[in-house]
Amino acid sequence: MPEPILEVENLTKNFGGLTAVNEVSFRVHPREIVGLIGPNGAGKTTLFNVVSGYYAPSRGKVLFHGKDISGKPPYVLAGRGIGRTFQVVKPFPGLSVLENIIIASFLRHPKRVRAEEHAWKVLEFTELADRAHQSAASLTLAGRKRLEIGKALALEPTFLLLDEVVAGLNPTEVDHTIELILKLRDQGITILIVEHIMRVIMRISDRLVVLNFGQKIAEGPPEEVAKDPGVVEAYLGVEKA
């Protein structure tokens, strides 16, 4: 196995008396797609927020390419190669789709003209080019989720955190987005994805990490994890005799 790109070590995040993430450890290797699943409130988004720098961990640490990045702010991590999307999408509504992507492109292309060129490539790739001059607020939900991915991609990340980019889309749009994610992996981007739709997560993930009440309860290939009694219990509850 090559060196892991991301190492989460004994990560704990408390909010006052609530432990949202409790002693979680796992690794992500280059070019892997790792699915992070668990019931509502399991701590997936909190874990994402710690890894992407929005929260500092209460205990434990996060290593990226072997370097401790715990507590580094999001804009520093973006520079290091970590891109992320938000479950509740965050377009810049008053700006055009193109401007949204240009802003993200500034990270690698500080000159306006170069950033705009790069933004058009991202728009082509995410199939948003025909909507480039619309305001971001005018996009459909599918469009906004696509824009969210586009903005993360414009950062030219090596590691991408995708938070429920499929939820709320219709089946055609879902297939479309899955295709896009697989294309990204083929380009060499490592992906950690949170998703509720099992059909999707089972299909695209190389490995799954399962959280419940902030703790890791299982890890492994999708088919194995799906049979794990602990996971079944967490999702469906215990069968009463």
Partner: peptide, 9 residues
Amino acid sequence: QGAEALGLN
């Protein structure tokens, strides 16, 4: 927050 994710301070 969205801006921060894009590398802006």
